[in-house]
């Protein structure tokens, strides 16, 4: 089969799968008093919540996946992801600071309050700035230093999040909500402004990623070679960094820090459509949607006696082994 045809079929199959998973999430329901799972159109009052949850999962999944593609291209490192580089943790720390500063009973009633978006963006960009500055050697951005600095900054941000959690309000409601947010969640009633802003970022990020596809292809060469074929590498890196940070911030503001989607989605997409970024960006976005919406549908069906599972737990349980499989089988090339 011609490579172009195979890639086109791969992208179409992903689109179809994403629609099927969204439809499943719309229909799936569980009896609150038992374990019985049913598939039926929801009553009108519930349908809006379901559609909102689907929109949140679509935005967060596609944003994290596109962010992962951009970072892996930028750093020529198949392990790069918003999570590894500390961008998710930075955005999470921003939200945590906002929660601590603005805490009141009303604010915690809404999992994605209006202050979370800007706080997440500030946190993500601050971490990006730190990682960017510390990741340079002799004036050039060094991919290896960048990943190492990212891991360390991520650990520091994680510790600060836990510190704020420890020092924060001790009411059971607040602590419970923060704990669930830290594990990742799909809110059914997010702040509209956060939803719209994150959705807009996902659309802009996807379009910009596709436009920069050829440049990202050239960026897979070594620095000297990339420059020699005409790539303005410094400008591309700054652009990709900011875009990846903004996309991650949008996802974290909506759902909290969620790992593995930004790591696994680009790899899975590459298996279907190949490494060219113009096609890889939309394909990874679709895989991110399938993972997030699919995980959200899956947690409706799982009953462990403690309420619905946090989505971050499910994505890590699915994404972690899948990533190990990719590494072990050698299919996880950037």
């Amino acid at each position: 089969m011609q490579p172009a045809l195979r890639r086109g079929l791969g992208l179409s199959a992903l689109g179809l799968l994403a629609i099927m998973v969204m439809w499943l999430r719309y229909l799936i329901d569980r009896d609150p008093h038992g374990a019985a799972v049913s598939l039926a159109p929801p009553p009108p009052g519930v349908a809006l919540f379901r559609l909102t949850a689907i929109a949140v999962a679509v935005i967060a999944g596609s944003s994290l996946a596109i962010s992962g593609v951009l970072l892996q291209a930028l750093l020529r490192n198949p392990l790069a992801s918003p999570f590894i580089l500390g961008i998710s943790a930075g955005a999470g720390l921003g939200v945590m600071i906002a929660i601590s500063l603005t805490y009141d009973a009303d604010a915690v009633a809404r999992p994605a309050s209006s202050s979370h978006g800007p706080a997440a963006l500030l946190g993500a960009l601050a971490v990006l700035g730190i990682v960017y500055l510390l990741g340079q050697r002799r004036g050039w951005l060094d991919p290896v230093s960048l990943v190492l600095v990212g891991v360390i900054v991520s650990a520091i941000c994680g510790a600060l999040i836990m510190l704020l959690h420890h020092l924060g309000p001790t009411t059971g409601l607040m602590q419970g909500k923060i704990t669930r947010w830290m594990m990742g969640r799909i809110p059914e009633y997010p702040e509209p402004i956060t939803l719209i802003a994150a959705g807009g970022l996902a659309v802009v990020g996807g379009a910009a990623g596709m436009v920069m596809g050829r440049a990202m292809d050239a960026a897979t060469l070594s620095d000297d070679e990339a420059r020699s074929v005409g790539l303005a590498l410094g400008r591309l890196r700054v652009g990709l960094f900011i875009l990846a940070g903004a996309l991650t911030a949008g996802a974290v503001a909506l759902c909290g820090p969620i790992g593995f989607v930004g790591l696994i989605a680009p790899h899975a997409a590459r298996l279907l459509v190949g490494p060219r970024h113009t096609l890889l960006v939309p394909a990874a976005a679709l895989v991110g949607i399938v993972i997030m919406v699919g995980a959200d549908a899956g947690r409706q069906a799982i009953e462990l006696g403690a309420g619905r599972l946090p989505i971050g737990v499910l994505t890590a349980l699915i994404g972690g082994p899948a990533f190990i499989w990719l590494l072990r089988t050698g299919r996880g090339q950037a």
């Binding site: 897979t220 060469l221 070594s222 490494p275 090339q333 950037a334």
Partner: peptide, 14 residues
């Protein structure tokens, strides 16, 4: 200018 390094790096399966 076109440049050929001693060992090319292509970090994708192109």
């Amino acid at each position: 200018i076109a440049y050929v390094p001693q060992r090319s790096v292509v970090s994708a399966a192109f």
